[in-house]
Design a protein around this nucleic acid. Structure first.
Lengths: 354, 354
DNA sequence: CTGAAAGCGCTAACAT
DNA sequence: ATGTTAGCGCTTTCAG
C-alpha cells in the first residue's frame, strides 16, 4: 500500500497525530504561542518537518477573516517610479510576513473606482492606493470602506484617511534654489497645468514661485510651462522643443518629475544645447534611470526609502488595530546632485539585470 | 434594531434566503452554471446586487483547493525589463481572472530555491519562475513539484517543464547582421562570460559568431568582451571604458541587453566618441528606456508582448488540466531600428507617469 | 433544474 | 500547558 502522504498535502491533524498532540497544539506552535512546553514544541516541529507540512492559507483566512495579503493599486508597473515603489512595498511587506498583489489602473477613472470595491478587496486585508484620475470630490468613495486604506500621492486628502505623501512645496523650493545658487535666473518650471487644481503640480509650482520670489526675481509666465498630464519622456522632449522653437530664453529647467527632465535633457542635447553649460536641469523623484543618464540627473529624493516603508507600516498597524488617529506622513527629502546641474555624484552599487 | 447586513459582509446563505432559493443555486449562478432557470437566475442576481454580496475567496479556495492566484518570481522589480514583464503578466492574468503575486529573489540562490517550496506556494495555484542563480544541475529542484511551473529565461531547460524563452541565437545573429549591413566590421560583443556555460550570454554569442563567420570575418577574441553578471548601466559603461582605455579599436557594439547598451552609449558619448558615427550600438530586450535615450536605441524585441501572454496561458492551461505535453515556446523576434545605429524610429503613444 | 447534508483545514472560545 | 467543540463560507456529492 503506497504512502498517500507523499502525494497529499499533510494537514494539522496529520501533524498532530504524528506528534501525539492535538491540532490546537500544532496551531499554537505554528503561530508562535509562547506557552508550549519546549519538548512538545520540538516534537511538533519534527512532525512538521517529517511530513513536509505547510499551513493551508485559505483555511486560516477563512477562519480568521484575514488573508495576510494587501493590495497595491498604481497606474502602471512599467512606469519606473511605480516599479521602484512596488518593489520596495513588496520588500517592506515581506518583512512583516505580508503578501502583496498589484493592481494596475492605468489612470483610468473607472478602473480606479472599480478597484475600491472590486472582487480582489475580498481577498486582501487592506489597500495601498495611488490614484491618478480621482481627485477632490471623490473623498466619499474612499470613506467608510470595509477595509483599511492608505493613500499615496497628492490627489486627495482627508483627515480620516491615512496618507503618505511628499514635501512637495519645500522640495520644489530647494530644487529651484539649487539652480538659483548656480547663478541661473531664467528657470523654466515644467509641469504645472492651469486646469489642474490639485496634485503634485500646483504644490511644486508653489515651491518654485516661493524660491523665485525670495530671490527677488519677477515670475515670468512664459517660464511656467504646462504639459500634458502624462509626465513622461516624450512630453518632456516635446515641451522643451516647443519652448526653444518659440524663442523663449532660459538657462535652467526644473522639471516636475525625472521622466520629464530626462526627456527634456535628451531633446536639448539633440538640438545642440549643452547640459548643463547652456541649460541646467533638475528633476524630481530620484528614479534609478537618472543615475545613469548622460549627464546624470540632479533631482529630488522625496523619500524613496521611507514612503513604501511607511505605507506598509501604517496599513499593517491599521489592520492589526494598533493604529491610533489617521496619520499624514511626509518624509524628509533631499537634493541629489548630478551632472545635469554641474554637480557630481558617485554611483551606487549596481543592481542585477538580464 | 439596526440592519447588521450593512456592516457584515453577506454570505451565499444570505443571498439564497433573500432570493428564496438554496445556497447551491446561488453558487450555480455565480459560477455560470448554465442550467439555471432564467427567472431564478435574475432573482439571485437581484439579491446579490441588493446585498452587495461578494464571494468569499478563502472559503471557495478552501473548498476547491485552488486560489486563482499565481506567483511570479523574478530578480527585482526595479530592473526595467522585469517591471515591464511583470506589468504584462499581471495584465494577461487579469484577462483570465487570475491574480498575481510577485516574489523578488534578487538573483540570490538561497532565495530562488526558497521560493519553490516557500509558504506562498500554498497560496498559489502555480508559479511563473524566472531564476538567475539556478542553472544546469538544479533541474531536480524543479521536478515533481506539487504545482504547475512555467520557466522563463535560459538558465535551465528540461523536457518535462513548460518553458517560455527567446530565439537568442537567431536574434543575436540578426542584430550582428544589422551592424555588418551598415558596413561595420570591428563589432564588439558585450556580455559573454567564459565562466558561464549557460544562459542568454553563450546563446547570443553563438549568434554573433555565426553572423561574423558568414560575413567572412575572423573572430577577434579581443572583441568578445566579458562583463560582470549584472547586465546594468554601470557594467556597460565600465566595460566599454576599459576597452577604450586598452586601445582596442571598434566601430560597433552589440550589447547583450539594453541596459549594457545604454550604459556603454553613455560612456562613449562622455568620452567624445560619437554614436552612431564613430560607434554604432545595438542592444537586446526592447525596454521602454531605449525609446527615449539619446540617441534612441536599436535593439531586439525578443517577443515583449507574447512572452508574458504565453507564460500565463501555459500556466493556466496546466492549472486547469487542459494542457498536454510540456511545451517550449520561443516567440518571433524583430529588430527595432533606432538612432544608435543610424536607423530611425517613430515614437509610440506615451504612457502615464508621475 | 434545485435542495440537503457534509466537510475542506484551520482557530476562537472554553474547558481542563 | 493542552484538549474539545464548533463553525468560518463555500462547493461537492447525492436526491429529488
Amino acid at each position: 500500500m503506497p504512502d498517500r502522504e507523499v502525494f497529499v498535502a499533510a494537514t494539522m491533524q496529520d501533524v498532530a497525530r504524528r506528534a501525539g498532540v492535538s491540532a490546537k497544539t500544532v496551531s499554537n506552535v505554528v503561530n508562535g504561542y509562547p506557552y508550549v512546553k519546549p519538548e512538545t514544541r520540538s516534537r511538533v516541529l519534527d512532525a512538521i518537518a517529517e511530513l513536509g507540512y505547510r499551513m493551508n492559507a485559505s483555511a486560516r483566512s477563512l477562519r480568521t477573516g484575514r488573508s495576510g495579503i494587501i493590495g497595491l493599486a498604481l497606474p502602471e508597473l512599467r512606469v519606473p517610479y511605480f516599479a521602484e515603489l512596488a518593489g520596495a512595498v513588496i520588500a517592506a511587506a515581506e518583512e512583516r510576513g505580508v503578501t502583496v498583489i498589484i493592481e494596475q489602473h492605468g489612470g483610468r477613472r473607472d478602473l480606479e473606482l472599480e478597484i475600491l470595491t472590486g472582487t480582489r478587496r475580498h481577498l486582501t486585508d487592506g489597500l495601498i492606493y495611488s490614484p491618478l484620475a480621482l481627485g477632490p470630490g471623490d473623498e466619499a468613495a474612499l470613506l467608510g470602506l470595509p477595509y483599511p486604506l492608505v493613500l499615496l500621492g497628492e490627489r486627495i486628502f482627508h483627515p480620516e484617511i491615512d496618507h503618505v505623501t511628499m514635501q512637495n512645496t519645500a522640495a520644489a523650493k530647494e530644487a529651484t534654489e539649487h539652480l538659483l545658487g548656480l547663478g541661473r535666473r531664467r528657470i523654466v518650471a515644467m509641469g504645472p497645468n492651469p486646469t489642474q487644481e490639485v496634485g503634485s503640480a500646483p504644490l511644486r509650482l508653489l515651491g518654485y514661485r516661493a524660491a523665485m520670489d525670495e530671490a527677488g526675481l519677477e515670475i515670468d509666465p512664459a517660464l511656467e510651462v504646462a504639459t500634458a498630464r502624462s509626465w513622461d519622456h516624450v512630453t518632456g522632449a516635446r515641451t522643451i522643443g516647443r519652448l526653444v522653437d518659440d524663442g523663449v530664453r532660459f538657462d535652467a529647467v526644473f522639471a516636475f518629475n525625472d521622466s520629464l527632465a530626462l526627456g527634456a535633457m535628451h531633446e536639448l542635447q539633440v538640438r545642440g544645447i549643452a547640459v548643463p553649460d547652456d541649460v541646467a536641469v533638475v528633476g524630481f523623484d530620484a528614479i534609478d534611470e537618472g543615475r545613469f543618464s548622460n549627464p546624470t540627473l540632479t533631482t529630488i529624493d522625496p523619500g524613496r526609502a521611507e514612503i513604501p516603508e511607511a505605507a506598509v507600516r501604517l496599513l499593517d498597524e491599521r489592520r492589526r488595530g494598533t493604529a491610533g488617529e489617521p496619520q499624514r506622513i511626509a518624509p524628509a527629502f533631499r537634493l541629489v546632485p548630478g551632472g545635469s546641474s554641474g554637480a557630481e555624484e558617485t554611483l551606487e552599487v549596481p543592481v542585477q539585470a538580464v
